[in-house]
Design a protein around this nucleic acid. Structure first.
Length: 205
DNA sequence: ACCGCGATGCCCT
DNA sequence: GGGCATCGCGGTA
């Protein structure tokens, strides 16, 4: 079942945990690409120094975060990468969940071409892991870019499905790559499935 | 394995 | 003009 608007209508810290194990699907040119969400980060908006919308900052770039829950927020970073977020909470309250790691399910051939310009069969083991074990890697593999910004995840091109009922342990840790965020660096707002190989990095300690 | 660094362009000040 | 919610390379072990 496709996740409903209500499912997304909660604090990003709660949504981030609940998105683990769910299935992200992108349908592009009749090809279905999907993967299990294994790593997320919550960005709590106005009160979160790490968030693009800290202190209610509102510019064209971050406008998607002010949209209805279940909207995609895709931004361009470091001159060459994209990051994909799921908007949470409530329209006008800018919270989002960054998707940082996926375990491929369908469309691995497509992902291999997108990431490495090679057929799946020619990839080394390390390259299989590297298909989707990072926020910008998975955008590349799933062909998610600026044209998916503000896309409604309750639509039928890019959406999230309820996962299987597999059991797993959730680990909470500090978020990655936000050294500028002062005390917010220490908040345990990154969540991942313990032991899953598609988690982007396992922090020691 | 781990670390350091450069790439590269858009957005906001 | 500075900085960025990243990645992959090439160096040293």
């Amino acid at each position: 079942m496709k996740l409903s608007r209500e499912f997304y209508s909660k604090d990003s810290t709660v949504l981030a945990k609940e998105l683990l194990g769910k299935i992200l699907v992108h349908e592009v040119d009749g090809v279905k690409i999907s993967g299990k969400i294994v790593e997320t980060e919550a960005y709590m908006g106005a009160i979160d120094k790490a968030a693009h919308t800290y202190n209610w900052k509102r510019t064209p770039r971050v406008e998607a975060m002010y949209g209805v829950p279940g909207t995609a927020y895709v931004y361009f970073i470091y001159g060459m990468y994209f990051c994909f977020n799921v908007v949470a909470k409530e329209e006008g309250i800018p919270q989002a969940v960054l998707i940082r790691g996926l375990e491929p399910i369908e469309g691995m051939e497509f992902m291999a071409e997108k990431r490495f310009k090679k057929p799946l069969g020619e990839l080394k083991k390390s390259q299989i892991i590297n298909l989707t074990n990072g926020p910008s890697k998975l955008c590349n593999a799933f062909d998610i870019n600026k044209s998916q910004n503000k896309e409604d995840l309750c639509g039928d091109k890019l959406y999230i499905l309820d996962g299987g009922n597999d059991k797993f342990e959730v680990v909470a840790s500090e978020r990655v790559g936000i050294d500028y965020a002062e005390e917010a660096r220490e908040y345990l707002w990154r969540f991942y499935i313990e032991g899953n190989p598609f988690v982007s990095e396992v922090k020691k300690k």
